[in-house]
């Protein structure tokens, strides 16, 4: 992190070598892991990938337990269906089906793990500042950031609307028909309210110079350097090699 400016954060910052990396580097690693997990097929290769890009960084960031827990939770519904389909309905033997299912589940877990690790160790404001530092236009960073930031905001609005409608006697429990009726009364003000808020936010951002060309003054700058830049290009290079290899089919995985 920059020595000149503390990151203005309301939440506690993690303190580990992983947290110290430029958020863009963490993003590239996460996206690279997801892409590599899609390309790689064998259990050994996927295990190596998961260990190198998810488990080791998660351990360094002291987030291993949470990353494992959340990844399992995320992967569980899809994972269970994959196992059931492959073991019970595979054209080969159940053992072959189980092997196939293990590979798919490992792939899902690796992808989920990469996303969870990034989410757990990178604050939106930090990522935004990093993207701006690297010259990404404000409009693009806003779309990236607000897509994620709007989700909790929308959930909070939905909760407020639910409470308000319940206070006015709306029945949101009971049988499916009642719940269906209630859903309309909840969804309409939630969606309309969210749309109005987006309109207000657009006006507010415009008046506060958010769309001004050029880089804004950054209150915090990421700790970037030649090693990280090289690592990011390295991830991209490895991905290209993996895709080419996947097409050529040279490696066993």
């Amino acid at each position: 992190m920059s020595a000149t400016a503390p990151l203005p954060s309301a939440r506690a910052q993690g303190a580990s070598p992983w947290h110290e990396l430029d958020p863009l580097t963490r993003l590239v690693v996460a996206l690279g892991t997801v892409a590599a997990a899609l390309v790689l097929g064998g259990i050994v290769c996927l295990s190596l990938l998961a260990a190198l890009t998810v488990l080791v960084p998660a351990a360094v960031a002291r987030e291993l337990r949470e990353v494992l827990r959340l990844s399992l939770l995320l992967a569980l519904p899809l994972g269970v269906s994959v196992v059931v389909v492959n073991v019970l309905f595979s054209p080969g033997t159940p053992a072959e089906g189980a092997l196939l299912a293990t590979g798919v589940v490992l792939r899902i877990l690796t992808m989920a793990g990469a996303a969870v690790l990034f989410y757990r160790t990178t604050r939106p404001a930090e990522l935004l500042a990093s993207l701006q530092y690297h010259g990404v236009p404000s409009r693009a960073t806003f779309v990236i950031h607000n897509g994620a930031a709007m989700i909790p905001r929308l959930a909070e609005r939905a909760r407020e609307v639910t409470e308000a409608q319940r206070a006015r006697g709306l029945d949101t429990e009971g049988n499916l028909l009642r719940r269906g009726r209630g859903l309309v009364a909840l969804a309409a003000p939630t969606v309309l309210g969210a749309m109005a808020e987006v309109e207000t936010r657009t006006l507010a951002l415009e008046t506060r110079g958010f769309t001004r060309p050029g880089r804004p003054t950054l209150l915090w700058t990421p700790h970037d350097g030649p090693v990280q830049r090289l690592a990011r290009w390295g991830v991209l290079l490895v991905l290209i090699v993996l895709v080419l290899e996947h097409l050529a089919g040279v490696l066993p995985c």
Partner: peptide, 14 residues
Amino acid sequence: LQDPGGQLSLIAET
């Protein structure tokens, strides 16, 4: 504008 919550950038954490 009128709606204070809608005018927050959602970008700043503090």
